[in-house]
Structure formats: structure tokens, C-alpha cells
């Protein structure tokens, strides 16, 4: 196995493109090293991207935020402005693993691991975040939602890496929330999850909404029917019931060791409803 630490994205892309065997991109390593330990993968090349300029910085851009691909969960949680603007995104990212894992794990890593249960992803999809992809054919910006292809697989091409995430500027009276269900209070993989991102008008009516569900389908679902159920409402009981129903209806989960189809379907609806209530309150709405 070879270990490389390129100092530009172009160099990283070159290394990955040229590699003939199995490659892994290393940011926080909290997934890659688990795969190594389990013998799931024996890479021929590991490309450590943390020495690429900007990859570990978090800065304001165009009224929003550009977050380097290797910014850790702990660093996100310490960024007051980001947490104020995108509390749902940051609380999702901070639910990945333990406080120890938070010292290293990144949202991009969570996204590229391509698990339908990744805690950072529903919040980013609900936020309509984009990622900057750099590769042999240059640079492109892609919606987060378009990155996961299936469990463990992304739509990235050979040689491509994600260098940053962009969270757009916020309209007034906007906020978001993320909830997941796990059997313990910490240290678990989501059995079902929901990210809700809302914008209200001055009267408290929802004018825009995005609802994303995790761990209930092969990839994170962006559920338009959930958004439709609450747009134009003040999140009254009827709207919440419709939201819950739409969320459960959208689920296409599996039975596995972590949960049943029945459980995931029901709980995803509950979480969507509860997350919507939190996001609505954060956006200034009063129930």
C-alpha cells in the first residue's frame, strides 16, 4: 500500500486517476480505517487530502458558507455563525460517532461513504447544499442529493474528489432541524432519520420547505410530497399529520439487524413531524 499526501486538488486527482488498483481518499479516516480494520478493503493507494489548501477551512461565501471537505464535526459545532444559520445541518454532522470521532469525521466523508443512514446527509439535502467536485476533467458543482448512487457507491467518477460543500445564503425566517432514531442515546447508526428545512413568511406561513429522509431507502430521499404537505400552512395539526403520512408513504426501507420495515416506516414519519416542529420554531414560527 502507498500513502500520498498531495498539496493540490489537481495532484490528488492525478494520483487517483493514474492508480490502477483499489484507492481510498482519506480525510478524517473514521470510515476508511474501520474498513481497513475489518479487512473489507485492502487499498493499493490512500490519498490523504488534508494537505490541500482550503480543505480544512470554513468561510463565508456569497452570504452562505463554504466548508472544506476535511473540516471536522467538532469544528463545525464550534462555528457559531454556521450553527445559527444551519442548526439542522450542524446537529446532523455532530451526531456522527462519538466525541472522539467528531474530532476527525467530516460531512464530505459521511456523504462519500454513501450509507443511506449517514447523519450529515439528510440535513445537507434538505438544505439544498452543493459540493465542489474536482477531477481530471476540471471542477464542477453538484447537488449533494446527486452524490449517493446506492449503498456504498457514489456518482463520482474515477479521479474525482469533493473538495468542499457550499451552504447557500438564507432567506429571512428560515431554519432547519435534523432528528434521527437510534436505540441508545449515542454511538449508533440511524435506524431512520429526517432533515427538514423551512422558510416562513412574516405571518408564519411556510413558503418553502425541503424534507429529506435517511435510512429508509437505498439513498437519502428528498420527499416533495412532504414539502407540499406543509407549504402554505402554519404547521397546524392537519399539516403535521399530512407530513407524517407523506413521509411514511415515501419510505422504501429494508428489514435488517437495526430495524424492521414497519418500524422504519412509522418512525420516519414521526421524526419528520418532530423535526418540522423544531425547524418551524427555529425559523420564528409559533405553534
Amino acid at each position: 500500500m502507498q500513502y500520498a499526501k498531495p498539496t493540490t486538488a489537481a495532484e490528488a486527482a492525478r494520483l487517483l486517476s493514474a492508480a490502477s488498483g483499489v484507492t481510498r481518499v482519506l480525510a478524517g479516516g473514521t470510515d476508511v480505517l474501520v474498513q481497513l480494520k475489518a479487512g473489507m478493503v485492502e487499498p493499493d493507494l490512500i490519498v490523504d487530502i488534508k494537505h490541500i489548501p482550503g480543505i480544512r477551512t470554513l468561510q463565508a461565501e456569497a452570504g452562505g458558507f463554504r466548508i472544506g471537505a476535511a473540516v471536522s464535526g467538532a469544528e463545525l459545532g464550534e462555528h457559531a455563525a454556521l450553527c445559527a444559520a444551519w442548526p439542522g445541518v450542524t446537529e446532523g454532522a455532530q451526531l456522527i460517532g462519538s466525541k472522539q470521532v467528531q474530532g476527525r469525521c467530516s460531512m464530505v466523508g459521511n456523504l462519500c461513504n454513501a450509507s443511506p443512514a449517514g447523519d450529515a446527509v439528510p440535513g445537507l439535502v434538505a438544505a439544498n447544499a452543493t459540493v465542489r467536485v474536482e477531477g481530471p476533467n476540471g471542477t464542477r458543482d453538484v447537488a449533494v442529493h446527486a452524490i449517493p448512487a446506492s449503498p456504498g457507491k457514489t456518482t463520482l467518477q474515477k479521479g474525482e474528489i469533493i473538495t468542499s460543500i457550499f451552504l447557500p445564503a438564507r432567506a429571512p425566517r428560515s431554519s432547519d432541524a435534523y432528528l434521527r432514531f437510534i436505540p441508545r442515546s449515542e454511538m449508533d447508526i440511524a435506524v431512520a432519520s429526517a432533515g427538514v428545512n423551512l422558510t416562513l413568511d412574516a405571518a408564519g406561513t411556510i413558503t418553502a420547505a425541503r424534507v429529506a429522509l435517511g435510512a429508509v431507502a437505498p439513498t437519502v430521499l428528498l420527499v416533495d410530497a412532504c414539502a407540499k404537505a406543509i407549504i402554505g400552512t402554519k404547521l397546524d395539526a392537519t399539516a403535521l399529520a399530512a407530513l407524517e403520512k407523506a413521509a411514511s408513504a415515501a419510505c422504501k426501507p429494508i428489514d435488517d439487524k437495526r430495524g424492521t420495515i414497519e418500524f422504519r416506516t412509522k418512525v420516519a414519519g414521526v421524526l419528520a413531524r418532530r423535526a418540522a416542529v423544531i425547524a418551524y420554531g427555529r425559523a420564528g414560527g409559533k405553534l
Binding site: L33, K99, Q100, V101, G103
Partner: peptide, 23 residues
């Protein structure tokens, strides 16, 4: 060896990490 137990906790540049998850 997989970041689930914390018995290998050290700090790396002031941040707490599982040393089993760092190369």
C-alpha cells in the same frame, strides 16, 4: 479497533480522537 469503545483515546493537536482511527 473501530472507534466504538474509546479505550484508545488520545488527543491530536488538542482534539480528542480514537488513535485506532488515525494512521
Amino acid at each position: 479497533g473501530t472507534g466504538d469503545c474509546g479505550a484508545c483515546t488520545v488527543t491530536l493537536d488538542g482534539r480528542m480522537v480514537c488513535s485506532c482511527l488515525v494512521l
